[in-house]
Design a protein around this nucleic acid. Structure first.
Length: 487
RNA sequence: GGUGCCUUGGCCGAGUGGUUAGGCAGAGGUCUGCAAAACCUCCUACGUUGGUUCGAUUCCGACAGGCACCUCCA
């Protein structure tokens, strides 16, 4: 099926086609591993995951998905430095070797990142590569040399800067983000104390080492430039090394449009001579309870915070998939609960589809129409809310027990395929409930049954309340009851 | 100051120049000793204000409110 995607470069929805063959080469801006990822980060990664799954499942493409790990930047350096309060015992002991500290520190958060996204249903086997910035330093230096050679970068006090005004003579700077150079940064603070740039628009390709910072040796035209790469150059280099240029799709949060992605385009073209990629896809931000997530408002949550509250990560996944990636998503606890219930309704339907019934529903047209609607919605700029609406409309109108054998089989095939994208359901018969109920709870239930049988309803209700208060539920059945754990 | 986006029923969240999005919550009903679960039914909105139009929530303008980026934050 033809896939359509909104391209930030053209600001329109365009039909998507891989540049070469049947393989989509896709690069996603990954995390800077200096702390636990928060739910805003998670939305970006879930969006990228959704996209690559739709490309595989609906577009029938092979996907080479690369997500970088930024393990060298101001924050990782700061927080891995000796004496840092951000250093955790689990990272091991700090040494005099600054590079060693940096790697230990970032490896810890990289590992936690992989654990977190796995819990959210992002499958590590879907990645072609997850490169770390520190593994590509020579290639970054090579790219910087090229840009200097092409006259678009200059060295200042051992740092290398991209010369924006020089570049503007050759090409547009402001492809993703329209810039008014007259008023540019008029109201923005400019970090004057840090590095010596010729122009505020210029950005660092390479930063000269500061005392007590890990660094890599770098010499350009006899000038010692020992230091570390700038942020943007990391992506430009790794994309080229792992995917080749140009590649198909680049994803990231809207905040990265400028300057990160804009600078990436400029660098890649200035150094390699080509624009890095065809499609730029950006996810919108997330708010929490209608407000921007921030530590000061107390609505800043890492995934781990939410798991501690007992939230199932798959409910976070479905909640975020129930809004379009291009609109601001309001994360609320009510919303998570609502999404969970919706998820279970579909799950129950799938369970029911496995049961043998003698339903008479044979109108495959209705089923096929729903399938077509769902996949068309997903293929049209990943419209998950529309797709889910179609599913609900179908299951509302066609209870599982009304479907005949053939229709149930067909519906199960559909849900299997859908779950290749959503990945929040189990395509299997309803499991036999094997919840461990503590003896004191079953005792209460037995007492209640006795009370009920002897029509002592007041006592029965009292006992039921005790069971509920203990975190279980009890449902009466024909000649007994069902006990279970509340979720 | 510059650039761009948004404002839909109790909540979340689609969409459209004139006919029901969907989910959650809520109400009523069937069932039940009462519940729960399940099922059935109901709940019809589009920030304000001008304009275009036979007709606007949908197009255009203004206003109000909110948000984002310009600060190596997804």
């Amino acid at each position: 099926m033809q896939i359509y995607l909104y391209n930030s470069l053209t600001k329109t929805i365009e039909p998507f086609k891989p540049l070469e063959g049947n393989t989509v080469r896709m690069y996603s801006c990954g995390p800077t591993v200096y702390n636990f990822a928060h739910i805003g980060n998670m939305r970006a990664f879930l969006f990228a995951d959704l996209l690559q799954r739709v490309l595989r499942t609906i577009g029938a493409y092979n996907v080479k998905w690369v997500m970088n790990i930024t393990n060298i930047d101001d924050k990782t350096i700061r927080d891995s430095a000796p004496g840092s309060t951000a250093w955790l015992p689990e990272m091991g002991s700090q040494t005099d070797n600054l590079m060693d500290n940096l790697l230990k520190f970032t490896q810890y958060f990289e590992k936690s990142f992989l654990e977190d996204i796995s819990k959210l249903g992002i499958r590590l086997e879907h990645f072609f590569s997850m490169p770390k910035a520190t593994e590509f330093i020579p290639q970054m230096q090579e790219l910087i040399r090229r840009i200097i050679k092409n006259g678009i970068a200059y060295i200042s006090e051992g740092s290398v800067y991209f010369n924006v005004s020089e570049w503007r003579k050759k090409d547009t700077y402001g492809k993703l983000y329209k810039i008014d150079f007259e008023n540019f940064r008029a109201g923005a603070r400019i970090d004057a104390d840090q590095y010596e740039r010729e122009d505020a628009n210029d950005f660092a390709l390479w930063k000269y080492k500061k005392p007590d910072e890990p660094f890599w040796e770098f010499e350009v035209d006899g000038i010692i430039c020992d230091g570390r790469p700038g942020w943007h150059i990391e992506c430009s280099t790794m994309e080229k090394e792992l995917l080749g240029l140009p590649f198909d799709i680049h994803t990231g949060g809207v905040d990265l449009k400028f300057p990160h992605h804009e600078d990436e385009i400029a660098q890649s073209k200035a150094g390699y001579g080509v624009e890095p990629n065809a499609f730029w896809c950006h996810n919108e931000f997330l708010e929490v309870e209608g407000q921007k997530m921030s530590k000061s408002l107390g609505n800043y949550f890492t995934l781990r915070d939410l798991l501690e509250k007992g939230i199932d990560p798959l409910d976070i996944r479905i909640a975020m998939l129930s809004a379009h990636y291009g609109s601001t998503y309001n994360f609320t606890f009510d919303g998570i609960n609502s999404a969970r219930k919706a998820r279970f309704r579909i799950q129950d339907y799938i369970y029911d589809l496995h049961q043998t019934t003698n339903g008479s529903f044979i109108n495959t047209d209705v089923l096929n129409e729903m399938k077509s609607e769902v996949f068309t919605s997903l293929a049209t700029d990943l419209h998950t809310p529309k797709a889910l609406a179609s599913v609900f409309t179908f299951i509302n109108d066609n209870p599982a027990n009304t479907l005949n054998e053939e229709a149930r089989k067909s519906a199960l095939e559909f849900f299997t395929k859908l779950n290749n994208i959503f990945d929040v359901w189990k395509i299997e018969p309803r499991p036999v409930e094997v919840v461990n109920i503590p003896i004191e709870i079953t005792d209460l239930a037995e007492q209640r049954l006795k009370a009920k049988m002897s029509k002592n309803f007041a006592e029965a209700d009292e006992l039921r309340q005790k069971i509920i208060d203990a975190g279980y539920y009890i449902q009466d059945s024909e000649n007994g009851y069902r006990l279970g754990k509340k979720w």
